[in-house]
Design a protein around this nucleic acid. Structure first.
Lengths: 330, 330
DNA sequence: GCAATCATTGGAAGCGTTTCCGATGACGCA
DNA sequence: TGCGTCATCGGAAACGCTTCCAATGATTGC
């Protein structure tokens, strides 16, 4: 940087100010410095900058299950925005509660990042405050709605779209395969998706039948198990609503193995519009996953730019009717 | 750090040495320093450390397609090892050639990471040299075999397992769906998987029939197209070998829509053992994806520890026979 | 038993920025 | 014209660590 300053004929102090867009630098001077930096193809050392009190130029992204399509796609969207803004992405896989505690404890202390994006899980108030007091911004994506900047779908309305579709087709016995996060089995992964199911049935004047609801850890194989349980009922449902497409795929497998036809013998609907859903001809409620990542990235950028925080954004979902749903036979 | 040194009754120099595992520190002293650090819950500032000439404690991972199961899973494996070793993961999505050039140009200059893991693509000699001259270690995973540390499967042998299985079942007209990376359409994604197909047929004394080979961009939908092209042949194959499971899924969809039965009318085999393969009852050649990530991470760790470089590791694949393959009918 | 060798340790000089504080000059207003 | 303001800019002190260079004391070979 000394070279740049010399070449521009200013002091290092001024060079630094010009380079980091500070006010109180004459436009002409700034231009001169920028030109000099350009010619010397100079870039500030993030380490030194950070050490002296600047920003790190890094954003931490906390992901619960990297290899799941949903999170990986979200991550892809975030990365693209952040990379365009010349920010680096620090990836943290946070599986269980211990990891999580570890993360929130360590990161702020080490000040490794200027901001945090939390994917797919709610941020507790204490954690949020802790980060914010340390000047670390925070944004959530693909998770539950809370009182801080987030991007997500409206779980309840997505669920309604799925269940209402089944209801509209005249199904009266509708099963639900709900999921919990295998890493945190005590918290339902998507309470909104369950609640909306209850409400939809109630609104349709149908009685709540707990035996039609089975809760399993997330995953296709568990979805298959869940379907088996539903089939073992004295009076199985005529349609099944699964909390996610991957779970629905498992259900479909079980139905096939049982020799049942879809949608003639059983309708199946999922949520997500996983790329495989089109191939499997699965009716589902689509959500724009990558876009949510992009939006979250942008939101973070404006937060970092000092703009006033948006409360949150809910992106729309839409029912995609394919071949896995039809009116019940009887 | 001054606090830690004081508390341990040593100088900062010694404290630094103890903390960063340098030799020439008495075991007792080191223990004392470590204990003091523990009590004060102190961690070295990576910025300051790096600035003063130390390591960044960061590893860059370069991924071509984050949202694909294969890469996301590899990434998950790498992250877990690196995180255990207290290294941070910097994620870089490198889609096309421009991104790639950008990455290799920028990263070394800014010295943001101590090492680089490149997923799923060959590293060119120039790039490797550039990194190594700057003291940045490099490891590749899930890609093609080259003359530097890598972890991957033996593409040729995996392909042989798939094709030989078909041959063993007595198929004589075997189609292949080969893939290219949509971002770099001029380079075949997996030349080894194509070559082995040719060789297997030759070894079986079968003539090479170019019309049985169709090359498409990676992806299920493209796989579906490819299958359609194969079906439009005057004499379609009796079995199809796809370069990856995702492509095979697409092929399966086309076959179903065409009213053909699997495996009676057509056998299908893929490579990867994607989680969905079990659900789809797809015969495939399984490769340990997460393990490859873990291995790559470990390899990097030993490189970072100054141990002599391993040339590379090839992990075994195995044929998983499911319901999508059977002898031809006629 | 003595000198040479070696393992440990401490002192202090950076590493490349940012920012506080004060200085300088230009500009506006009375 | 004179003086106060304010926009700009420069000097220098951190920021928190690593490592070179010596110095010290312990160990070993003859």
């Amino acid at each position: 940087m000394a070279d740049v300053a010399r070449r521009a004929g200013v002091s290092m102090a001024t060079a630094s100010r010009a380079l980091s867009n500070h006010p109180h630098v004459a436009a002409a001077t700034r231009a001169r410095v920028l030109a000099a930096a350009e010619q010397l193809s100079y870039v500030v050392s993030p380490e030194a900058s950070r050490l002296a009190g600047g920003a790190t130029g890094r954003v931490a992204v906390v992901v619960p299950h990297i290899s799941r399509w949903f999170f990986a796609t979200l991550l892809e969207g975030i990365e693209s925005v952040l990379r365009d803004a010349d920010l680096d992405v620090l990836l943290y896989h946070v599986g269980d509660a211990a990891d999580r505690r570890d993360f929130f404890q360590r990161l702020p202390a080490r000040r490794k990042a200027d901001a945090v994006v939390v994917l797919g899980m709610p941020v507790r108030d204490g954690e949020r405050e802790r980060l914010e007091t340390m000047g670390v911004h925070i944004v959530a994506a693909g998770g539950q709605v809370e009182a801080y900047p987030y991007v997500s779908i409206d779980d309840a309305s997505a669920a309604r779209q799925a269940v209402d579709h089944l209801l509209f087709l005249n199904h009266r016995r509708i099963g639900m395969i709900a999921t919990v996060d295998p890493a945190e089995p005590h918290w339902p992964a998507n309470p909104g998706r369950s609640r909306a199911y209850d409400e939809a049935l109630a609104d349709a004047g149908l009685p709540a039948d707990p035996s039609l609801v089975v809760t399993v850890p997330w995953g296709s194989l568990h979805g298959a198990d869940a379907m088996a349980r539903l089939l073992s009922l004295r009076e199985p449902p005529t349609a099944v609503y699964a909390h996610s497409d991957e779970v629905a795929f498992g259900a479909v497998r079980t139905l096939r193995r049982a020799g049942l036809r879809i949608p003639e013998d059983m309708s199946v609907v999922g949520i997500d519009d996983h790329p495989m859903a089109e191939l499997a001809d699965l009716t589902t409620v689509a959500q724009p996953v990558r876009d949510q990542g992009v939006l979250a990235g942008r939101m973070l950028l404006s937060l970092l730019a000092g703009e006033t925080a948006t409360t949150g954004v809910t992106v729309p979902t839409r029912l995609v009717v394919r071949g896995s749903t039809a009116p019940p036979r009887r």
